[in-house]
Design a protein around this nucleic acid. Sequence first.
DNA 1: TTTATTTAGGTACTTCAATTCCTAAATAAG
DNA 2: CTTATTTAGGAATTGAAGTACCTAAATAAA
Lengths: 132, 132
Amino acid sequence: MSNLINISEAASLALHSMALIARNQPQRMNVKVLARDLDVSQTHLAKVFQKLSKNGLVKSVRGPAGGFELDKPAEDISFLEIYEIIEGKVNLTDCPLGKTHCVFETCIFGDELNRISADIYATLKEMNLSKF
Amino acid sequence: MSNLINISEAASLALHSMALIARNQPQRMNVKVLARDLDVSQTHLAKVFQKLSKNGLVKSVRGPAGGFELDKPAEDISFLEIYEIIEGKVNLTDCPLGKTHCVFETCIFGDELNRISADIYATLKEMNLSKF
DNA sequence: TTTATTTAGGTACTTCAATTCCTAAATAAG
DNA sequence: CTTATTTAGGAATTGAAGTACCTAAATAAA
Ligand code: FES
Ligand code: FES
């Protein structure tokens, strides 16, 4: 069973966590309860948050009653931003696979899939945390 | 650097190989020349072809001058069919990640990404080997 | 018939990313 | 000040995908 859109487990966790934090504003949330809510290991989720924190999406507070909170308004945090912090910058070139050398001079997918890739990109860019 | 559409290296090899074989019809091609053309290891490509062969997409001929040829008309072999043999059946449910249990009652992606997943699916189903 | 070529397929190895483990640092509460 | 809680981050482990190795089976050509 496979998915057509490429969103890793880690990126999924990041998106779900950020949505939960947005919904819970202005109170912050810690990895313990987030991990419980999302039913994943604390350590894995903690790693995800190190990236989110280092990239300025969340502000971390250590110690008792600590945790994470959004570091800017919810509507200013797009799904794309979260996605790219975890997965790396999205590659939008002539080939949906980002291939530079191919036996075929023109990409075997024509430009159908590129059109769709651009569509996904725009969609992720439009979606933000304001709706939670 | 990441791609938004989920196509593994193996699936990419399968699609490119099948396109090469379609283009080279009615002569068959063997893994040796295909691997050279695609610049990958013979053994890896051979594994991909075991799946394609077992699933009736190509007919294998052993021995000198052997190799693989399409086992049905090029226009009857869709990209989707090739894709699913390698990646597994595509999951088209209410969630683009195929998640069944989620903290959010309604998928955080709304139905935007589902619409797009269905779009990719339809596109892969439409595309076939007749154009090569 | 013998030999060379080519696919079939099991097993093992490698590599890279995902995941976990463990300790340190920060800080609020008692 | 001490303790409990929580994030930070390096190191180690695991796991999956890709790759290689090896032998068997088929078959065309010599
Ligand atoms: S160039 Fe896009 S698949 Fe080969
Ligand atoms: S249900 Fe689709 S992402 Fe959570």
